[in-house]
Amino acid sequence: MNSSKTRIVVLGGGFAGLNFVKHIDKDKFDITLVDRHNHHSFPPLFYQVASSEIDPSSISFPFRRELVKKASGRVKFHMESARSVDVSRHCVITDHGSIPYDKLVIAFGTTNNFFGNDALKDEVYTLKSNDQAIRIRNEILYRCERASIEPDREKRRRMLTFVVIGGGPAGVEMAGAIGELKRYILRRDYPDIPLEDMTVSLYEGRDKLLASMSAESSETALKDLKSLLVDIHLGRQMKSYADNLLTFDDGSTLYSEMVIWTAGVTGRPLEFEGTDFRQGRGGRFPTDRFCRVTGLDDIFAIGDVNLMTTEEYP
């Protein structure tokens, strides 16, 4: 790299990170983009990949192809996972070595929040990447194929009991997509499966769907999901999931071999060496109005991992 330029390392090629490197002045800065994947994806449509409505390539493109457009080819790309940041040496430690920086921009985005129950990570299905969406898609189709030739009705019903935990946007979309499969596709593609043998359930701990949105949006989502034959359970929090048995806060249980977790997000963790800095509320990085991380020099945070509080927006 040109030592006369300020070296900027960007961690994460999501909406924030990719737009940042595309628009910054390449004549003034040496820029390195680091991401654990070699492609950018459009997360709002992961649920359509998971329900076989679109192909993964429809919502993804390679970073390297994008970075050669509009003279952006001067951006270096590293397919690596950032493990920690050594603030005294000004370098990012990755799973393949280290990358020095003058300025560091953290644009990790968020990951699944299991609210302290990290054992769930290996038990449930999640929807934060194309790989995870493809895994859900393959499992749903596999279960439909197996159920279509299963003579034991109880076993068939167990195969086709799908549960979505979390009534936010991702949960509503995912439950609705499986509901569309039940209402519109099952009779046509799987005529040997009785409609009542498939169950799609959505559980939300609060008393309404889409709690962060308007009352009208919540009511519309509830109405539309019911029309897609989705069973809605509000005010019910999942406490545990083991041996395919869900346990809820009211003591009730439900057997399901496929639980899709969309109950919340948290900032991706990142370790810091040479400082006692810790990430803030929700795993996010507290910043000032210029996106500078509070308590760290030459480090910025943008996108979903940024926690910028003001008097107007506390």
Rank of each mutant, 00 (worst) to 15 (best):
residue 139 E to I: 09
residue 179 G to A: 02
residue 158 R to K: 14
residue 143 R to T: 07
residue 149 I to H: 15
residue 145 E to A: 05
residue 187 R to G: 05
residue 191 P to E: 00
residue 146 R to P: 08
residue 146 R to Y: 13
residue 188 R to P: 00
residue 136 I to A: 08
residue 149 I to C: 14
residue 141 L to Y: 11
residue 167 G to V: 06
residue 184 Y to G: 06
residue 184 Y to E: 11
residue 173 E to D: 06
residue 167 G to A: 11
residue 185 I to Q: 10
residue 167 G to L: 04
residue 190 Y to P: 02
residue 175 A to P: 07
residue 138 N to R: 13
residue 197 D to P: 01
residue 169 P to R: 11
residue 170 A to E: 12
residue 162 F to L: 09
residue 152 D to F: 03
residue 167 G to T: 02
residue 175 A to W: 02
residue 185 I to M: 15
residue 178 I to F: 07
residue 174 M to F: 07
residue 166 G to K: 00
residue 161 T to H: 15
residue 173 E to G: 05
residue 195 L to F: 10
residue 150 E to G: 03
residue 171 G to N: 06
residue 138 N to D: 14
residue 195 L to Q: 13
residue 169 P to W: 14
residue 198 M to V: 03
residue 179 G to M: 06
residue 160 L to I: 10
residue 136 I to H: 00
residue 134 I to T: 09
residue 191 P to V: 03
residue 158 R to C: 07
residue 184 Y to M: 15
residue 192 D to Y: 11
residue 174 M to R: 02
residue 172 V to A: 10
residue 143 R to D: 02
residue 178 I to Q: 04
residue 150 E to V: 03
residue 148 S to R: 06
residue 178 I to H: 01
residue 144 C to E: 07
residue 154 E to M: 13
residue 186 L to M: 12
residue 194 P to V: 09
residue 185 I to R: 15
residue 180 E to F: 09
residue 136 I to G: 02
residue 185 I to W: 14
residue 179 G to Q: 06
residue 179 G to R: 01
residue 148 S to G: 05
residue 190 Y to I: 00
residue 185 I to L: 15
residue 192 D to T: 08
residue 147 A to L: 08
residue 173 E to V: 02
residue 179 G to K: 07
residue 179 G to S: 10
residue 165 I to M: 09
residue 149 I to Q: 10
residue 192 D to E: 14
residue 145 E to V: 07
residue 161 T to Q: 08
residue 195 L to D: 08
residue 170 A to Y: 03
residue 145 E to P: 07
residue 193 I to R: 12
